[in-house]
Design a protein around this nucleic acid. Structure first.
Length: 608
RNA sequence: GCCAAUUUAGCUCAGUGGUAGAGCAACGGUUUUGUAAACCGUCGGUCGUCGGUUCAAAUCCGACAAUUGGCUCCA
């Protein structure tokens, strides 16, 4: 689902409405048609709103007497077709506020009455009527219901009134509409194609990861092939971070309650997102003592802060960059779990950079460059950087009360972003409690938006932990902290990589880099020698010594998405060569073994 | 957590009241093959779990679990 559909719907200005595309117009009109049909079938339905989305449209209903299910689609669609065939004109009307209220009150449409109040004083209150259906609506619409040529209902979902969990749930019907049947069918086909790239499907096919009911929901088990991906990513991260002056640390998976009381995550802020504590007597012989509470860590920062605090720090040590691929556990709500994209145990490409204010801009710039370096390696081009800032009116509530630091750091971050020419959008009021942040947003093949990486400034928690360093003039100062995770978590990042590459990983990451396929039995021994040589050079090579027919071996290698196949027959053996075949690219001809090997090693070294 | 749907062999799926089936995979044998499927045979399921209705349940009902699509939330 698109971001537009996920966000609580903002009222569009009249100018924005004028710019509404033909497709949005069509879809919005189709939403009216759907509401018309629903009211014919269930006259007692209460209507909320029905806007267009990136994918189609929806309409929210309150209908306690009936639960919508996909079985209703046929009936509703049939009724919609009737409305379309009746070819009603979408007729714009204006009412005064009082007339509008009276109109909806007479029909008992309570949500519409409430929505009326959202329209600013002075703005025209417009209605659209098509047939017997009249809706509060600023438009625009297509001319007639008959203009809707191709539509389909997609799914039924619950949605909280005004997007607020505390409000009642309404029933939402999603649908889509296109200019013609061909475009609708193409879109449906594209949806089917996208499903083939779904990381859950490819993960099963390639034996990358699995979930098991006995282990628990959201707790992935990494199989050997998936573990290769993890270890290659970690190699990349460790090399890059080492070169950038990071120091590696390691911290336990749990900690006592007090750590999170200090950080402020407990007792309230983050308690719901953490697994409930393990409670135990520190001394089994003294059960009269209070029990100690241990929490699985949901983030690594507090542990890293304690490492900072472990020895007296000097300005000479700053910036101090502590890095760890830390494993965290978050008790995500069961309905939010989704394959590898949303899990309960995750390994984070985490690091905390402690620095002085004069070092901040450089550190922040270097972190950004690291992001861009990674995204270039993976060929990510459709990401959006979201710069979340604070709302000064909420200082001391939603945001830590440090007006000067907020302004300073936000200005610095903005300057770095502008100077480095990064495309970013600024989102007010979305910052973390302790500072501004940058999230990198990507879309999964199913169209869902996720944060793939994050980069946050923290000027509150170091103070809570009493972190200080000695400055040049022998005073004590609290460091700023940059919290960064450019490769996000293994789980989500690899989920994206699987979909991004559709399982066809570049050589350096490929779980099986080379498969050696002998044409007949006589080459098996030779193939074994080649395999052993490659493995001694660190190449993930396998020999296909099966009794399959040659064509079947090729097919199996293709289906397994093996990156490179070396075919060896009598000709190659005699010539000291291999015939190279690349996944998806077919037969690339023969090369001498030395050259073929060198090329492999070079591509791996350069992460191609 | 909430709403809806789904759950049958390792995978993809048939089977809507009369005690389970296909293709692929796996395993055994025969075959030794030049760039996407050789042939024969064998194994494999208390139909998600527990309970209920019934002479009889994969099939009907209920609870629970997991998964999926949304909502809320988030790396």
């Amino acid at each position: 689902m698109s971001e537009a559909a996920k966000q609580p719907v903002q009222r569009k200005s009249l100018e924005e409405r004028d710019r509404m595309s033909d497709l949005e117009r069509l879809r919005h009109s189709c939403a009216h048609i759907m509401a018309t049909a629903v009211l014919r079938l269930w006259p007692e339905a209460m209507l909320d709103i029905g806007p267009p989305t990136d994918e189609g449209f929806y309409y929210d209903f309150e209908l306690p007497s009936h639960r919508f299910s996909p079985d209703d689609f046929e009936k509703i669609e049939a009724e919609m077709k009737k409305v379309i065939k009746e070819n009603h004109v979408f007729e714009k009307q204006q009412k005064t506020r009082e007339e509008a209220r009276a109109f909806f009150e007479s029909k008992g449409q309570k949500f519409k009455v409430e929505r009326l109040a959202d329209i600013p004083e002075g703005e025209t209150i417009s209605f659209f009527q098509s047939g017997e259906f009249t809706d509060l609506c600023a438009g625009p619409h297509v001319m007639r219901t008959g203009n809707v040529k191709a539509f389909k209902l997609l799914r039924v979902a619950a949605a909280y009134y005004r997007g607020n969990e505390k409000n009642q749930q309404l029933q939402r019907l999603y649908g889509t509409a296109f200019a013609n049947k061909t475009e609708l069918e193409e879109w449906l086909k594209a949806q089917e194609e996208a499903k083939k790239r779904d990381h859950r499907k490819i993960g099963r096919e390639m034996e990358l990861f699995t979930f098991d009911e006995d282990v628990g929901p959201g707790l992935p088990l990494w199989m050997p092939n998936g573990t290769v991906l993890i270890e290659e990513l970690e190699k990349l991260a460790k090399e890059s971070e080492f070169a950038a002056g990071y120091l590696r640390v390691r911290t336990p998976h749990l900690a006592k309650e007090n750590l999170y009381l200090t950080s402020g995550h407990l007792p309230h802020l983050y308690a719901e997102s953490m697994f409930p504590p393990i409670e135990m007597y520190e001394d089994r012989d003294h059960a009269d003592q209070p029990k100690a509470k241990y929490y699985l860590k949901a983030m690594n920062c507090p542990h890293h802060h304690k490492i900072f605090a472990a020895v007296p720090r000097s300005y000479r040590e700053l910036p101090l960059r502590l890095a760890e691929y830390g494993t965290c556990y978050r008790y995500e709500q069961s309905g939010e779990l989704m394959g590898l994209m949303r899990v309960r145990s995750m390994q984070m490409n985490d690091a905390h950079i402690y620095c002085g204010p004069e070092q901040f801009a450089n550190e922040f710039r270097a972190v950004n460059e690291l992001y861009l370096k990674y995204f270039k390696i993976f060929g990510f081009d459709k990401f959006v950087m979201r710069f979340s800032t604070h709302d000064p009116s909420k200082l001391g509530q939603k945001f830590v009360n440090e007006p000067i630091l907020w302004k300073q750091t936000e200005d610095m971050v903005r300057r770095v972003l502008v100077e480095s020419g990064i495309n970013f959008i600024e989102v007010p009021n979305e910052a973390a409690f302790y500072g501004p942040k940058i999230d990198v947003q990507l879309w999964s093949v199913s169209g869902r938006e996720f944060t793939i990486a994050t980069n946050q400034v923290d000027f509150a928690v170091p103070r809570r932990f009493g972190l200080v360093y000695k400055t040049r003039d022998n005073t004590e100062a609290t460091p700023l902290c940059i919290h960064r995770a450019p490769l996000g978590t293994h789980e989500r990042f690899i989920g994206f990589l699987i979909e991004h590459y559709a399982g066809r990983f570049p050589l350096w990451m490929a779980p099986e880099q080379v498969r050696i396929v002998p044409i007949n039995e006589d080459q098996i021994e030779y193939g074994q020698t080649l395999t052993n040589n490659l493995r001694s050079l660190g190449v993930r090579a396998q020999l296909d010594a099966s009794g399959d027919k040659f064509g079947a071996k090729i097919r199996n290698a293709e289906l397994a998405r093996v990156h490179t196949v070396w075919v060896i027959g009598p000709k190659e053996q005699t010539a000291g060569a291999v015939a190279i075949r690349r996944h998806g690219a077919g037969d690339l001809g023969a090369k001498p073994i030395d050259i073929a090997t060198q090329e492999l090693l070079e591509d791996i070294r350069l992460r191609r």
